Measured scan of single mutants.
Amino acid sequence: MGFKLLSKLLVYLTASIMAIASPLAFSVDSSGEYPTVSEIPVGEVRLYQIADGVWSHIATQSFDGAVYPSNGLIVRDGDELLLIDTAWGAKNTAALLAEIEKQIGLPVTRAVSTHFHDDRVGGVDVLRAAGVATYASPSTRRLAEVEGNEIPTHSLEGLSSSGDAVRFGPVELFYPGAAHSTDNLIVYVPSASVLYGGCAIYELSRTSAGNVADADLAEWPTSIERIQQHYPEAQFVIPGHGLPGGLDLLKHTTNVVKAHTNRSVVE
């Protein structure tokens, strides 16, 4: 069995187990497998329904001669939608809004960016022009300005110390501490036991640490421990890039980060 097929099978099995364990909360999309990078042309966006009122959005972007996937989250909030992270750029984010209108038909009224990198804030200006209120932590807003990236308009308070959590509509926002970046936030959907790890969490097929220019490698494993301790009931975990899975993604990420750190020390 090929690795790609095995990865998709694991996603399907995880979703099936969740649907059985929580039949009222989960209505997993039966329309197909989780979209992969090879299936999404740059400039297009796919939506994948995880649970009743919960979707991931998947886009792709060219970077350094390669094409990478990027995940975000959409959560229903009454007759409105909360968006977590842009679709990595203005063109993708405009396509995301169009796809949401086509498939869901509810307005996106608020959006949260989970850290300051372009795959999370690139497209904020498109959201703002569409009347979406954009939010991020003060740290993310400051770092985005320093980096020359787009800056969300509103500040999220109460997320300055490791372990801080605040309720934001249908989700809980959690600051686990520094990891992929010093400002990275985690998003949890309690009604569906869905954990969105953003770039602080890796997919299972990833074996290298990737972009760690703004990471705190020493603190990252401790931050992941905080996530595990705060959300032990999480059933569906979405990484910032690639295929979702279960809580095993947290341990896998820790292993990859520690291996990278150990290699760096040896070198």
Rank of each mutant, 00 (worst) to 15 (best):
M1L: 14
G2E: 13
K4F: 15
S7M: 15
K8S: 05
T14N: 06
A15E: 15
M18Y: 14
A21P: 04
S22K: 10
A25S: 13
V28W: 11
V28C: 03
E33L: 12
Y34W: 09
T36H: 06
T36G: 08
S38C: 14
S38R: 08
I40Q: 06
I40M: 04
I40P: 12
I40S: 09
I40V: 06
P41Y: 04
G43M: 10
R46Y: 15
L47C: 12
I50R: 11
G53F: 06
G53S: 08
V54N: 12
S56G: 07
H57P: 01
T60M: 07
S62Y: 14
V67E: 09
V67K: 14
S70A: 09
N71G: 07
G78E: 07
L82I: 10
L82S: 06
L83T: 07
I84D: 00
D85K: 01
T86F: 02
A87G: 07
A87K: 00
K91G: 10
K91D: 12
T93E: 03
A94Y: 10
A95V: 11
E99L: 14
K102C: 15
G105H: 06
P107N: 11
P107Y: 03
V108N: 05
R110K: 02
F116Y: 15
F116D: 06
H117F: 00
D119H: 00
R120D: 06
V121S: 03
V124D: 07
V126L: 13
A130S: 15
A133C: 14
T134E: 11
T134S: 10
Y135I: 09
A136W: 10
A144I: 15
E147C: 13
N149K: 06
I151G: 10
I151W: 08
I151Q: 02
S155H: 15
E157V: 13
G158P: 04
L159K: 01
S160E: 08
A165S: 10
A165N: 14
R167F: 14
R167Y: 04
P170L: 09
V171Y: 01
P176G: 05
G177R: 00
A178R: 06
A179K: 00
H180I: 00
S181W: 00
T182D: 10
D183L: 00
N184F: 00
L185R: 00
V194I: 12
V194F: 02
L195S: 00
L195N: 00
G197L: 04
C199N: 00
I201T: 12
L204Q: 02
S205D: 08
S208R: 10
S208G: 09
D214L: 12
A218Y: 04
A218N: 05
E219H: 15
P221V: 11
T222E: 07
T222S: 12
T222C: 08
T222I: 13
I224A: 11
R226F: 09
I227W: 01
Q229A: 12
H230P: 01
H230F: 15
Y231I: 15
P232D: 14
E233P: 14
A234D: 02
Q235I: 01
V237S: 08
I238C: 12
I238G: 02
I238H: 15
P239D: 01
H241F: 00
G246M: 09
L249V: 07
N255R: 11
N255Q: 14
V256D: 11
V257Q: 12
K258Y: 10
H260I: 15
T261Q: 03
T261I: 02
R263V: 07
R263S: 09
V266D: 03
